[in-house]
């Protein structure tokens, strides 16, 4: 500002946060909030949770760079993106229960538009792997209808738009070793250990 005569017009603490919350609520009510997001602190780090009006569209680990993920959502889904926690209340609550060992499945609506074709078939199969169990990439390939597409299963798991909630961490190598994970090996180990308890 070039002139301090206007200093009294600057915001007081909390004014913009209050206006932002009001904007998020109005945008939701008016059907303008295409993508709502929040972050959640968990034992596998900060998770970005994003939902369309249809359902949960993206879960991302901090190693995936939340800001980059939001830019991709703005491009792939809609740029009408706001931090608006209310739409994520249910999934955040279920994740808290899951990490507390009190929940073995998620019942939130999913919007799987970011997974298409074979990747979609893999993502739709993953919830059938039971809590505490694992399947090999080859088993998942067979279940998704393409027994030879073992490598493609690896790619589909790596690109799972909603990890943790859709349990790609339950897919491991045929020799029993863990294999890769979008959230990093420590996150995968944490989840498998949690479920084995």
């Amino acid at each position: 500002m070039s002139d301090n005569i206007f200093a009294p017009l600057a915001e007081e603490d909390g004014t913009l946060a209050r206006l932002h919350a009001r904007l998020a609520a109005t945008a939701e009510r008016e059907g303008v909030l295409d993508v709502a997001y929040r972050t959640l602190d968990t034992p596998v780090g900060s998770l970005l949770l994003a939902a369309t009006e249809q359902g949960l569209v993206r879960v991302a680990f901090s190693v995936q760079d939340h800001e980059a993920v939001l830019v991709k959502l703005a491009t792939a889904v809609s740029p009408r993106v706001l931090e608006a926690p209310a739409r994520l209340d249910q999934v955040a609550h279920q994740l808290d229960e899951y990490f507390g060992g009190k929940r073995d499945r998620f019942t939130v609506p999913l919007d799987l538009r970011l997974a298409t074709g074979f990747r979609r078939a893999v993502v739709e199969h993953l919830p059938h792997i039971r809590y505490g169990g694992t399947e090999s990439y080859a088993q998942v390939a067979a279940a998704a209808g393409s027994p030879k597409a073992v490598r493609a299963v690896g790619t589909a798991c790596a690109l799972n738009p909603v990890p943790v909630v859709v349990p790609c961490h339950r897919v491991v190598r045929s020799d029993g070793s863990m294999g890769g994970y979008a959230g990093g090996p420590d996150a995968k180990r944490t989840l498998l250990t949690l479920e084995a308890a």
């Binding site: 703005a74 740029p79 993106v81």
Partner: peptide
Amino acid sequence: MEPFERVVERHGAMVLRVVRAV
């Protein structure tokens, strides 16, 4: 395109000063 959240974050304070002044 940038998420709209960034537009609010970057320009929210300016718009508040403007509408207060006007």
